[in-house]
Simulated scan of single mutants.
Amino acid sequence: MNYFRLADMKSLLLRTDEWYRRRIRMVIWKQWKRIGTKLANLLKLGVSKAKAWEWASTRKAFWHTANSFILTTTITTERLRKAGYVFFADCYQKVRLKT
């Protein structure tokens, strides 16, 4: 980040972060594996039972599901930050403010 702090690359890092968050959601969705596990975890995240069942039993691909309304509203950026994930745009902002 320090190497690129003089460059204006905020938009590039924001797009990269979008892709990164989607990839993390995909990996989480893959880790849940079974329909019952997906259902239980979606219910824990606050999704209604009908919608949780609908998305838990979906046959859509992992990458497609990672960008779905259900996962983007339940596995939010704030939840990912709490889990310890670091995003490029945040690091870039910290470095840019120092100069």
Score class of each variant (00 low, 15 high):
F4W: 09
R5Y: 15
L6R: 15
A7E: 15
D8A: 07
M9N: 09
S11M: 12
L13R: 08
R15A: 05
E18D: 12
W19C: 03
Y20E: 08
Y20N: 07
R23Y: 04
R25M: 01
M26V: 00
W29R: 07
K30M: 06
Q31E: 11
Q31R: 12
K33N: 03
K33I: 05
G36K: 01
G36S: 00
T37Y: 03
L39Y: 01
L39D: 01
A40W: 04
L43V: 03
L43H: 02
L45F: 00
G46L: 01
G46F: 00
V47H: 02
V47F: 06
A50F: 14
A50I: 15
A52G: 14
W53Y: 15
E54M: 15
W55V: 15
W55D: 14
A56Q: 11
A56G: 09
S57T: 12
K60I: 07
K60H: 08
K60F: 03
F62I: 02
T65H: 06
A66I: 05
N67Y: 09
S68N: 09
F69W: 08
F69H: 10
I70Q: 00
L71K: 00
T73V: 02
T74D: 02
I75P: 03
T76I: 04
T77V: 05
E78N: 11
R79H: 09
L80K: 11
R81S: 08
R81F: 10
R81H: 13
K82E: 12
K82Y: 11
Y85T: 12
F87S: 13
F88N: 13
F88P: 11
Y92S: 02
Y92N: 04
Q93H: 08
Q93L: 07
V95R: 14
V95K: 10
R96G: 08
T99L: 12
T99Y: 10
